[in-house]
Design a protein around this nucleic acid. Sequence first.
RNA 1: GCGGGAAUUGCCAAGUUUGGUCAAAGGCGCUGGACUCAGAAUCCAGUCUCGUAGGAGUCCGGGGGUUCGAAUCCCCCUUUCCGCACCA
Length: 962
Amino acid sequence: MYDPEQIEKKWQDKWEQAKIFEADPIANKEKIFMTSPYPYASGPSHIGHGRSFINGDVFARYYRAKGYNVLYPMAFHITGTPVLAISSSIERNDKETIERMEEYVSLHTADREQVKRLVESFVEPWNIVNYFSDTYKNDFKALGMSLDWRREFTTGDKLYNKLIEWQFHKLFDEGYLEKGEYPILYCPQCGNAVGEDDISSGDELNLDINEYTCIKFPFEDAYLVPSTLRPETIYGATNLWMNPTGTYVYARVNGDIWVISEEATILLKNQNKDIEILEKFKGIDLIGKKVKSIDGARDLLILPGDFVDTSVATGVVYSVPAHAPYDYVALLDLQKNDATMKEFKLNSEEIKKIEPIQIIDLLDFEDFPAKVYCEKYDVHTQTDFEKLDKATAENYKVEFYSGVLNDKCGKYKGMKVNEAVVKVIDDLIEDEKADKIFLPVTKDLKCKCGKEILVSILRDQWFLNFNAGDWKQKALKCLSNMNIVPTKYRMNFEHVFNWLEKRPCARKRGLGTQLPFDDNWIIESLSDSTIYMSFYTIIHLIKKNNLTPEQLMPAFFDYVLLNVGNIKNLSNETKIKEIVLKQIQQEFEYWYPVDHRHTAIMHISNHLSFYIFHHVAIFPEKHWPKIVSLMEPVIIEGQKMGKSKGNVISISNIISNYSADLFRFYISHSGDFGISVDWREKQIQIVKNHILRFYNFISENTVKLIKIEGKIENIKTKYANIVLSKCTKKFVEAEIGLKNLNIRKYLQLSFYEVFNIIQDFNRYCEDANDILEVYKIIFPNWVKLLSLTMPHLCEELWEMMGNTEFLSTVIWDDFNKDYINNDIESEFDYISDVIADILNIQKIVSSTNLSKFYLYTAPSWKYEVSKIITSKEGNFKKIIDECKQIPDFIKNPNLIPFVKNQIKNRKWEKDIINLNEKNLLEEYKGYIEKKINSSIIINSDYDPKKRSPKALPNKPAIYLET
RNA sequence: GCGGGAAUUGCCAAGUUUGGUCAAAGGCGCUGGACUCAGAAUCCAGUCUCGUAGGAGUCCGGGGGUUCGAAUCCCCCUUUCCGCACCA
């Protein structure tokens, strides 16, 4: 009886007691260092983590089985804001967060009171981290992961911080770090930068920031300052729009006097501007007045625009009716509306004279774009917001990518719009004719505290500059020497590398490591997880020797990780014994580099690229990464897995509803790395049956094998030898699959294909003893191979076979190639072909089971002619010439039709195997008859339908008598 | 938009690097049969179309092309998924 729960617990305990996955350096033994990225400990583990670590585990187990000393460790990532966000939500008594956390905690804790207490304790961030890292550990142990848990840590540990400090010293020394300005989302109430986790519905909204250009139009003694996302259209400005009911101010901004909306002053204040409000007034007061255009050449009227939102940017816009559908329609509206013009005391003649100025040319456009798109989307008035938004979007997209500035644009003439934008901004700012203002792309972004989010500008943001020095060249060099599996993802890396420029690498808040030379900053969470694999190699020794964070000074890591510095001095300085330093250093040297890292493709453009960049920045070439294998994500019943969808399946769920071996098998087999694994409940149940069938089959037969020797010499029938040969081949191929890091192929071959051969064998082999002899030989290898995926079940079967050592520690021999016999296999293939032909005929004539099949093998001359055909590569004339040499052949009336038929079917391309067909058919008579459920008669003289002349080499003629 | 994937016979999914052995593995589903009181499970056979003879026809997103020969190579198109920088 297969009881996965009991079996899995049993072997997990045994492995743990025996410490078989705790890896220490062994002199002269080759090592493999295998990793998957540490998970984030702010929630429970789910099947996506499962896929990554199970794949990794299959590899780790395979490497171990091939005789390598394998280190497969894991740790926990806690850096950044998510954990803090949970704590502050709990503190705030946020219902949603509390419910979610209670749900998470309930996965491992049944008692309601206990759950409540635990969640309450989450106000303290470390309680979250500790709780979830423990559940991860439980879950992963319950999946049979062959991890070395002695090396576990979190990225918030003081010891870990020391490594990261050292890393940033190194990057700084290399000149890869620099400072600059940077806009961020900011909550004025919390006084903090905010991210996805701090923002209401932050995971669903667009959290990008728009950069508006504020253009200073000279106006009386001040500037009227509209803002725009499209400063390149400045030459097409015809007028300005202000909201007549909006509140505006005269304000001193960094020395100048600006006319802007009142709300804008708050934004600017947060963006490092000195602001002093001088005077408030209503928009209507300026309607009808004029400003000078930027080049001073024209006067632009200030006109009333109800659509102008004073809370957006500066609350003033300039109008480009030729290229902005909103402006175009607003202008038309006004020109038609005498009442409004009268109301604002505008000169209607003057307004009616305003004409759109086209400054961007597009191929195949009959009219200016704003008009074209307004017509396309059937826009009638400025209140058709929906249509106008669509028109604007398309207008912008087309102009941005295909538009060229025309001769009205001065020195920008001929530039493409997407290039001109950048240039115009730079020039205007250079000339002090413009400034910038930043806004969130999404309106009304709210912090979870309730306050509206603004954009603030950091002055001294630290960046990693990937273009500095030869950093990128080194990274590309590393990449070109790496093995990327599946290969189709390599292009992706190359592109990312070329595209990487600068990345902010520190933040104002969050858990993590302080920037060592600027303690206002916390190192950003993707930058502190790039070379941490090196920490796995030494952390257990650091802990064992009770080293303190203070002892892990930069010189310590210089020595351990780079083998730089004098050990005596270091020992004096750090108060660490030389022998300990030496040991730590040697352990690092032994395990490094990371041989194989396995993770999801989504990490290509960030983590994995940084992994490579930081390694090449800090380590010598011999310690650069070697293999990266990648997998697509796990989806649920065809749907993307996600918190908001509520379809996340946790590992603890898997363990209680299924079993580790089943999960491991399913996740490994249901798709190659390059496709998403679809978790489908119905399929799981089916696979469960397959595994059960396998277990029962092996365990039931194993009982019968006690007295069986398992020697090929004891095997009497050819069929048994063939099965042995075929299975051995499958094993060899399966292992090639593993070598190529193709787990699915390995499983397909070793599980399904071998099982199919064996089951057929079990059914049709007539020699009961042969069956057992073959089983005795095959089973141990079979179970070994499958133990990578189903370690518990296979350990159990292995033990059942009388073995005392762990299967997980057995080093595999090569599969015995002596069992492979291609000759008898091709004989068997011949028999299989004959059977297929007979079954086909049976099907067509729908014969009864009582019928008889007469088989007639081809005469020897056809074999000889076939050889001639092959040697002449199907050249008819040459073949006949050759046949003419032999009178018997050329006299034979069947010769020409035979030759023509063989040529037509391009038979010369395949070798005709020389078989004694008659003997073979006799030999396999019983097998054939059992398979076709009819009797056969071989080479009888009885041939009423004259079928025998149809016989071809390796293809006997068949006559069916019903 | 940029960049990278993907599209296979009812479904899932191999095959594409290295063209022929591909009507295309395997699993599922479906149909028929065995077993069973019955169901589940298990086992057998079939499952593109036509065919009372092992054959023929059509097929691998669409359209062209290269080749004696294309799921596989080249070009164009369509659809779809993923990433696009401070969330990790």
